[in-house]
């Protein structure tokens, strides 16, 4: 792989204290994320994949280890800096979209665009996700697939380094899910971001540049896909 690493997780560990039990959600892990790659993190529930995603996305700090990004250790920065990191470098796509109900598709995207200095034009992004004609609609007036496309548009309008997707097709039907995956693949190929998809759907792994397989809080396998499949050819 000739791409450069933009983030490095160094012996990162995450332990949650829940009452009197401590749960080791992520055991000591070291790995890198490359520029503009499509990375799929695969694993059953409880495998630590969401924990890993949250650490990469600056939503959480590790119990031990370093997360190095642009010569900074995200494990050590203040909450304020972490918020700034999320604001400028991370786009998030959720399983259940989490759009603002009181804003139209366009306004939802604009809200995110206002957060950064040099966003993509909202119109371009709307066109890119194919919702040019739905821009005036409120989330309640959109289908699940359309809502997820708004959610993706909202994430990429900030031109983030990382586009993090937590089960992006989890709530969608097969056909719609494939369209969304197509969109994500396109973003990783032509956009500015490294796309990281967390899923338990093994079929999705076929479209990734790299696949991280997790189980019980640790990486059990790292696969490099020399020939990723286009999403329309994936079946599950």
């Amino acid at each position: 792989m000739d791409r450069e690493a933009i983030m490095r997780l160094d012996e990162v560990k995450k332990t949650y204290i829940m009452g009197e039990v401590s749960v080791e959600a992520l055991k000591e892990t070291t790995f890198e994320i490359f520029n503009r790659e499509l990375l799929v993190i695969l694993g059953p529930s409880g495998s630590g994949k969401s924990t890993l995603l949250n650490l990469v996305g600056g939503m959480d700090k590790p119990t031990a280890g370093k997360i190095l990004f642009q010569n900074k250790d995200l494990a050590q920065v203040s909450d304020k800096e972490l918020t700034l990191f999320r604001r400028q470098e991370v786009g998030f796509v959720f399983q259940f979209y989490n759009l603002i109900a009181d804003l139209t598709a366009e306004e939802n995207i604009a809200l995110a665009a206002e957060l950064v200095n040099d966003p993509l034009p909202v119109d371009d992004v709307l066109r890119e996700v194919g919702l040019d004609d739905r821009r005036e609609h409120f989330p309640a007036q959109l289908s699940g697939g359309e809502q997820q496309r708004v959610s993706i548009a909202r994430a990429i309008v900030k031109k983030p380094q990382f586009l993090l997707c937590d089960e992006p097709t989890g709530a969608l039907d097969y056909e719609t899910g494939k369209i969304i995956l197509g969109l994500l693949a396109e973003i990783s190929r032509e956009g500015h971001s490294s796309v990281i998809i967390v899923t338990h759907n093994t079929a999705i792994a076929a479209m990734a540049d790299r696949v991280v397989r997790m189980r019980s809080g640790e990486i059990v396998e790292l696969i490099i896909n020399a020939e990723p499949l286009p999403p329309e050819r994936i079946e599950w």
Binding site: T83, R86, F94, L115, R154
Partner: peptide
């Protein structure tokens, strides 16, 4: 979700 997006 707004906090995740980077709102303080």
């Amino acid at each position: 979700s707004l906090r995740v997006m980077g709102l303080s």
